[in-house]
Design a protein around this nucleic acid. Structure first.
Lengths: 344, 344
DNA sequence: ACTTCACGGGAAAACGTTCTCCGGAAACTT
DNA sequence: AAGTTTCCGGAGAACGTTTTCCCGTGAAGT
């Protein structure tokens, strides 16, 4: 019942606490004889090290904080899953914080996690600009990796998908399948994903031909905005809607269906992220798949390597290549519409 | 740079460590004069209490472990969000573990969390039967609340939606809208949600009339199974598919669409949980909404109140009432199909 | 036969709290 | 005026580790 401690194991194995600690932690060679006795006793008593005491002494909790803007955003669960696996595989635990897209609670959460002495922080900043102070302050105290979104230049290491490359994949695909009058449905604001995807669209839309209009509508990353955007854009009959993420695309698909538009016959729709919903939409959504597992592995890797508050010059910005997943919503052959869905 | 500790504050305020602790924790009255001095010094030095040391001494980490079977199951993110908010509001932190639907990793995760001295555990067991040993063992050591799913009788306190009531809502609705030949598409296995929903269906299907067939197909809680089930069931032309959760229903809808079936004209489809996807499906899915916020609040409440390993007799099983959300997939008037979607 | 090591082991000091004592002074009792 | 309580504050012991010293012992080097 009562917790069995090092002292108990020491008594049972007839040696000192120090020795027991050394055997179990393997920090220093110990005589084979004693080592066996210690291990025996530990086993027999069912000794489990107390991580709290260990953390206090060694100043390392083996704990990583993850700060998300909104776990209900369907892109994150897969990311959380991979991170959890990567961290637990190294014997670290994951302290989760959700900040409801609000930079102030985000700052509070980051503070709370630091107070709990997390060894490192993973942050998906809620707002490129307003998240910055808290993130920068935290980065000075522990290794911190920005995930998925940026937070101003040189604040911390970051790992994200190569948004520009993803957008290029989309544009090339649309060009190859003969689309000529695209429209970008993106998100306003300073969020790096919004900015980068939009910029890449602007930069690459000429791939669809010299006469491709640089039309873009900006709202936010939501289904509702996807629906609203269609109402504004559909009258001008674009032949492709390039959406900045899958939620927008899902909303767009839904609204186009209501308006009786033929997808992909009249208009192709593409998303970004490849959330589970994408494969389930009707028609299934052509989108850019983020390399979630690799993002997580890369982030976890950066964390262990980096000392806290490394020189700003040494910041790394890892960009991983995405993959285009072609589904029914952009099927080159309209006859295949609604049938080409690839299960999520 | 260096952490400022109680000792520093004591020195700066000219009193002892004990007094500083008392002032800051408010555990014992302290002279107004000294109190001010201490608070001043603490403020000035930017003192932040070290939770690890506090935890070691007071044997309470202020930390709660949450063990999920699969965070990528779209039902969980909303639950996690509410739990996170409820716990952080009380100054506790959330240690998250995902066990990939595998009882063995689940046991390992539970062990890891216990080793980290969590004050309490919230567990959504992966398997009613195989999760039991680990859960029971953990429940003997810390307050433990089972969430959403059960894990054998009397193992721990539990909080879940009233599955039977939810199924009754569905059946009553179908009966009221004239459906007479329903088919249940559920999940096999011992998971309590699967069992309870199925049982409630069997018990209540007569509400659709004396001749309602007690037909049921059992697979698992997945989109794929929803699709497969339709292939098996559609030939016999049921006029309602009562699915055990929204994922199954989404798969069913997708497959029915491929087969050219008219939903809700020919056949109604209902789900369970009201995950975000439900409102986005085409037609939008009629389903049973779980009171997620209340579940979280109730679970968090139970945790703080319960001492570890309370007498089995005193276990509580809280059941919360769900709500029926009627959408297009069961619209009484087929003409309204595809248009009655309520945004998620 | 003396140093000089390498080696295995123990005692005890940290780590930053909380909390139990204990003592002195002031405030009440008789 | 002596006893009794209350109040405020400090010294110091815990909490369970890790880690720094230090002390033997025996083996190797002179």
């Amino acid at each position: 019942m009562a917790e069995v401690t090092l002292k108990d194991v020491a008594r049972a194995s007839g040696c000192s606490v120090a020795t027991v600690s050394r055997v179990l932690a393997g920090t220093r060679p110990v005589g084979a004889e004693t080592a066996r006795a210690v291990r025996d006793a530990a086993e027999r008593l069912g000794y489990r090290p107390n991580h709290v005491a260990r953390a206090l002494r060694s100043r390392s909790t083996g704990t990583v904080g993850l700060v998300l803007p909104q776990i209900t955003n369907p892109f994150f669960p897969a990311l959380v899953r991979e991170l959890e696996h990567a961290l637990h595989a190294e014997g670290r635990a994951l302290l989760l914080a959700d900040c409801d897209d609000d930079p102030e609670t985000e700052a509070a959460r980051i503070g709370a996690l630091l107070d709990r002495q997390v060894d490192a922080l993973l942050v998906v900043p809620a707002d490129e600009r307003r998240s910055r102070p808290a993130v920068a302050a935290a980065a000075a105290r522990v290794p911190l990796v920005l995930l998925d979104r940026g937070c101003g230049a040189g604040v911390a290491d970051s790992v994200a998908v190569d948004n520009a490359a993803g957008m290029t994949l989309v544009l090339d695909h649309l060009a190859a399948t003969g689309r000529r009058r695209p429209c970008f449905v993106g998100a306003a604001g300073t969020a790096s994903t919004a900015v980068e995807r939009h910029a890449a669209y602007e930069a690459g839309v000429h791939a669809l031909g010299p006469d491709a209009a640089r039309r873009a509508e900006l709202g936010d990353f939501s289904v509702e905005w996807g629906r609203a955007a269609v109402d504004r854009v559909w009258p001008s009959r674009p032949d492709a809607l390039v959406c900045a993420n899958d939620l927008i695309a899902a909303g767009a698909l839904q609204q186009l269906r209501r308006l009786g538009a033929d997808v992909p016959g009249e208009v192709a729709v593409t998303g970004f992220d490849d959330i589970p919903l994408a494969g389930l939409a009707d028609p299934a959504l052509t989108t850019v798949r983020q390399p979630v597992a690799e993002l997580a592995a890369e982030a976890a890797g950066l964390l262990v390597r980096r000392p806290a508050g490394a020189a700003p010059a040494a910041r790394r910005a890892v960009r991983l290549a995405p993959r285009l997943v072609v589904r029914g919503s952009s099927a080159p052959d309209p006859a295949a519409a609604g049938r080409a869905g690839v299960p999520a």
